[in-house]
């Protein structure tokens, strides 16, 4: 039976990932369908954001504005990816209730494809913001930036697995999307996005070591802000968080998946 079939079996099938990819492609193309600039909007908007912020920060803040901009470039796309992926995927099954009740298909395809569509946005927005940053501060360019796709993997894995959990939990608890928004608005201030990590007092840094969101975005943030690859401990911490999130999500999925169809 589809609902009870081993999730791992599906993950190993080429057909599964092809379906995920096609659904994600469809979501992406619908986002800017028939617009004149099309997918260029994904580049244009974040590029402009950084340029405008850089202009205002220049005369509003006393501290060096490079640090502030670098922090935004490294944190903002990742944060938007987390928020948008989890918010969208929490409604993945409910929005597709009419399909899910009538076809034989693995239901995990939907949250994963929603999440994959956000990976595309993440890549574009990061690229646009980094380009804007390098135009403003060419001396900050570092070749090690090519490591970003590897360093961002633990974060993508975390978000994809928790998106499955939230997609299967929301039909039971319909307040999940609102709850997520509340949690995100609090967590936003607990990670260094609009303030540099260097501003955090040494005595308070220990608190960040227990913040899973900070730990998974830290490798990319470190790479962009320091201009060199993070040390192995920073990478290991993000990998450990990813493994824990996968395990917790799998347990939650197993508990919710069987009867979810009746709650949609």
């Amino acid at each position: 039976m589809v609902g009870n079939t081993n999730l791992i079996k599906f993950f190993l099938e080429k057909k599964y990932w092809l379906s995920v990819f096609l659904l994600a492609k469809s979501t992406i193309s619908n986002q800017t369908k028939d617009s004149f600039l099309g997918s260029l909007w994904s580049l244009f908007q974040p590029f402009c954001n950084i340029m405008v912020i850089a202009y205002f920060v220049g005369f509003l803040l006393k501290q060096p504005k490079e640090a502030m901009i670098m922090n935004l470039v490294s944190g903002l796309p990742l944060w938007s990816f987390i928020v948008n992926s989890l918010t969208n995927s929490s409604n993945s099954l409910i929005n597709r209730g009419s399909i899910i009740k009538k076809v034989i298909i693995s239901r995990t395809i939907f949250p994963i494809s929603d999440c994959l569509a956000q990976v595309y946005t993440l890549l574009y927005s990061f690229l646009a913001m980094y380009t804007a940053f390098i135009i403003l501060y060419p001396e900050k360019f570092s070749l090690s930036i090519v490591l970003v796709p590897i360093l961002v993997l633990p974060l993508i894995i975390c978000v994809m697995s928790s998106s499955i959990l939230f997609a299967f939990l929301t039909p039971y608890i319909r307040d999940i999307p609102q709850l997520l928004n509340l949690v995100f608005s609090i967590v936003y201030w607990t990670i260094p996005i609009i303030y540099p990590y260097s501003m955090v007092p040494e005595s308070k840094k220990i608190l960040f070591e227990f913040n899973p969101v900070f730990l998974v975005i830290r490798p990319v943030q470190f790479l962009v802000t320091e201009g060199s690859p993070p040390n192995i401990f920073i990478i290991m911490k993000s990998c450990i968080v990813a493994v824990i999130v996968i395990c917790l999500s799998y347990v939650g999925y197993k508990k919710c998946s069987k009867n979810v169809i009746y709650y949609i």
Partner: peptide, 24 residues
């Protein structure tokens, strides 16, 4: 079930094949 009205009939053939588990 699952037709995307914004897409062409040809695109929807692929979509329906996903939903009918016959993409392979």
């Amino acid at each position: 079930a699952g037709f995307d009205m914004e897409k062409t009939g040809r695109d929807n053939i692929k979509m329906l094949m996903i939903y009918n588990n016959m993409l392979s």
